[in-house]
Simulated assay, not measured.
Amino acid sequence: MSNFLSSSIGKKLIMSLSGLFLVVFLLVHLSINLLILFDSTGGLYNEAVHFMGTNPLIKVMEPVLAIGFIVHIVYATILTLQNQKATPTKYNVTQKTKTFSWASKNMYILGFAVLAFLVLHIIQFYVKMKITDTAPIVEATGGHDGYKLVTDLFTQHGTLSYVYCAVYVLAGILLGLHIRHGFWSAFQTIGWNNYTWKSRLFTLATIFAWVIAIGYSILPLYMTFFL
C-alpha cells in the first residue's frame, strides 16, 4: 500500500481526492456567501456565519480542511516537479496545441495564484474573526458581524475597494479555470476514464467551473457597485 501511495499514480490519486474534497468546501462556502444577495440587512448571512462558527462538526472539519489544502498543494508541487524532469524540452507545437488546453498546461500556476488569493482572503476575514477577534460585533447577539466585515471591504475603502473587487473577480475566474481541468481530470485518475464518462465529466466540469467563476465573481461586483 505504501509503495502504491509513493508511486506516481498513487500521488495523483491523493491529489485528485483532496481536490474533490476541496470542491465540496467551495460549494458550501459559495452557498453561504450567496445569502448576501438575498438579504440586504445581513441577518441571514450572519445567522449562517454564527452557525458555521459554533457548530461542533464544523470546528472539527476546520483542521481537516486545512490538511486537505496542504496535502493538495504538496502533492501538486511534487507531481509538477516530477513532470518537469520527465518531460522532454522540445515539443511538436501542432500536437501540443491540439491536445492540451491552456488551463491544463498551467494548472500549477493557476493553483499558485489561487493560493496567493486564499492567503489574502484568510488575512482579511478568518484572522479577524478567529484569531485577533477584531471583526465587527452584532450588538443584539454579541456574535461577529460577518456581513459588515465582508461588505465594508468593498464599500468603505474608496479606490482600494475597487482594487479588492478586481482581485476577487480575477480570483474567481482563475479558480474556475483551475477547476475546469482539475474536476474531470480527478475523476479520470480515479478510473472514470472511458469515452462516455470522459465526455460527460468534461461537460459537467465546464458547467461547474462557470458556476464557481460567476458565483465568486458576482459577489464582489454586487457589493462594490450595488450596495
Results as ranks from 00 to 15, higher is better:
N193W: 00
A140V: 13
V49E: 02
V93H: 11
I214Y: 09
T99G: 09
Y162H: 14
I14N: 00
N92S: 14
V167L: 15
I9H: 06
I179S: 06
N106D: 02
K148Q: 13
T224M: 02
M52G: 10
F117T: 07
V23G: 09
S104H: 12
I123E: 06
A116H: 07
A113P: 06
F226D: 01
E139V: 15
P56R: 11
F4S: 00
I179G: 09
A205L: 03
L22T: 02
V93L: 14
L35Q: 05
V64P: 04
L79I: 11
Y126E: 07
N83F: 05
T159S: 12
G10M: 04
G68V: 00
L20W: 01
G172L: 11
L5S: 02
L27E: 02
V93R: 14
L153C: 05
M61G: 09
L221N: 01
D145I: 13
F208M: 15
G176C: 10
Q156G: 09
G215P: 10
I123S: 12
H157R: 05
S104L: 08
M223F: 03
S8G: 09
F69P: 10
S18V: 00
I173K: 03
S161E: 01
I122H: 13
D152I: 14
L79A: 10
T132I: 03
T77N: 06
T206Y: 01
E62I: 14
V167R: 09
I190M: 13
F112E: 10
D152S: 15
C165F: 03
Q95V: 13
K12S: 13
T224C: 06
Y45P: 02
L153N: 08
L170S: 14
E62S: 12
R180A: 15
E47Q: 09
I179P: 07
L118F: 14
S8H: 07
S18W: 00
H144W: 04
I58F: 15
I67H: 03
K148G: 10
V119C: 12
F187C: 11
L65N: 10
A171Q: 04
C165S: 03
L27I: 07
T87D: 07
I73M: 14
Y162F: 14
D145H: 10
G142N: 03
I207W: 00
A186H: 00
F4Q: 04
V138F: 04
V211T: 12
K128R: 14
V114A: 15
K90N: 08
L57R: 09
G146R: 04
T141K: 07
V127P: 08
V169G: 11
N193P: 07
L204F: 09
D152N: 14
V114I: 03
N106P: 06
N106S: 06
I173R: 04
L115H: 07
V60D: 02
M129V: 06
L13V: 11
L110R: 01
H144Y: 10
G143L: 02
I78Q: 08
T80R: 10
M129Q: 13
F183K: 11
S2T: 05
Q156S: 12
L201A: 13
E139D: 12
Y168Q: 02
I212Y: 02
Y216E: 05
I73K: 05
L13G: 03
Y216P: 03
A103K: 01
S199C: 06
L17S: 12
Q84C: 12
F154L: 08
C165D: 00
F187A: 13
T89H: 05
G142E: 00
T189E: 06
L110W: 00
A135M: 04
Y91T: 15
L201Q: 06
L175P: 05
A186S: 15
